[in-house]
Every structure is written in C-alpha cells, then in structure tokens.
Amino acid sequence: MIEPFLLRALAAGIGLAIIAAPLGAILVWNRMAYFGETVAQASLVGVALGLLLNIDVTLSVIVTTLAVASLLIVLGRQKLVPLDAILGLTHHGTLALGVIATALIAGPSVDLMGYLFGDVFAVTEGDLWLIYGGGAVVLTVMAWLWQPLLRVAVHEELASAEGVPSRRVRAAFIVVLALTIAIAMKIVGVLLAIAFLIVPIVAARPFAATPEGLVVTAATVGAASVALGLAFSSNVDAPGGPSIVLCMALIAGVSLAISSRR
C-alpha cells in the first residue's frame, strides 16, 4: 500500500512533467534556457513579496516572474552588453535579493530550503488542484500557440514576414511560462524549476524526429524520472525534488552518450 503523501507527490510530479515538456521544447529551440533559469530564480523575490504583503505566494510569484521577464526584454534591447551577461546580472542579483528578503522578512521560521528546492512530499490536495487546473490552462494555451511558436522557433523573421505576430506570440508564451514556474515551485523549488523544462528535452532529443515526438518523449522521460526519483528518495530518505532532477540528468547524460556513439 503506497502512502497517500507519496501518491500526491507522484501525481504532482507527473502532472508537472507533462505541463513542462512543450514549454521546455520552446525554451530550448529558442536558446532561452538561461532566460528561463533567470526568471525562475528571480521568482524568489516574488516569494518574499508574497510573505511581506501577506498575499498568496503563487500569485506574487507569477507577477514577479512577469516583471523580471519584461525587465530582461527591455535590458536585452541595449547593444552594449550581450544578453547572457544581462541574464547573469539579473539572475544573481535577484537571487541574492530574494534570499535576503525572505530571511529578513519572515525570520528563521520560514522554510527557505522549501522555496529553493521545493517539498514534493508536502504537496497538498489544494496544490494538486493548482497543478492540474493551472496545467490544463497552460496546455490549452500551448496547443493554441503551438504552430506560431514553432514557426517563430524555426525562423523568427521568416515567420514575421509570413504574417505571424511573433512579438505577441512570444509575450503570450512568457505569461504561460510564468504560470508554469509558479506551479513548478511547489514541487522542485525555484532553483530546480527550469530543470523540469529543459533536462527532459535534452534527454529526448536524440530519439525524436518531429517536434511533437520530442515533446511526447520528453514528457515520458520526465514522468519516469519522477517515479524513479521518488522511489529513490523515499528509500534512502533523500530530498524529493533534487532526486527527481538527478534522475532526469542521469537519463539525459546516458541519452547524449548513446547518441554521440551512433
């Protein structure tokens, strides 16, 4: 008999793996992995803001993520410093601010580690509603945006010339990304959230011939990693979120090693 908390963890993780796959694919194809990483880690500022203003942390995380994404887009338009340097600056600056703010505002009673790495075994039934309800919204929007997102990923200028409103499509994608990060934070925390999006895509890439095939394979890899990671975690009493991400990374490493030998 599996414990209910373990079942909830499993349901939460698998749900996230499915939601994350199409978003991760778009991030990787547009070389936005570090962009995603930055906005995800900046969401710790959102946690602090939520605690400070005593509002729902999920909501404040979404708002903060969107604000940081907009800031990055504006800063990215200057030509003096390359985008990855801007991302590095924002990433570390907001992470430092988030850690300080969370510690100062709430004092030692706030579980900082929980926000940083998540607490998958503490997932409640309410969280599951958020994951599956929010996830349905995310997947619906992604299905609707899929063709234009794909065309922008293939060649943004060609897509624009053919009438795809690239800027609006990207903006909509970033909104969905913010929602996904807020969901992922419950399970793997801000530091590992983007791993759920990126790593399964890397693992699945050698075995996919179509964009959709890649997404489905990545979702499967993600779900399998959740099961393996949770099994490992509950057997040796290791932290849940990091165990899942470690499984993903190992599968990705093996997958790339196999493909480089072919």
Binding site: A153, H155, V202, A209, L214
Partner: peptide, 21 residues
C-alpha cells in the same frame, strides 16, 4: 531570408518545414 540557422535541438523534416503554416 539571409541567415537560416535552425537550432539542431529542433527536429524537423523538410516536408514538415514546407507545410508549416
């Protein structure tokens, strides 16, 4: 277009590319 560097992480056949959109 002048430059066309598709990311290798995006698997896509020529047939699919032609029918995009």
């Amino acid at each position: 277009p002048q430059r066309f560097d598709i990311d290798r992480a995006l698997p896509m056949t020529v047939a699919r590319f032609l029918s995009l959109g």
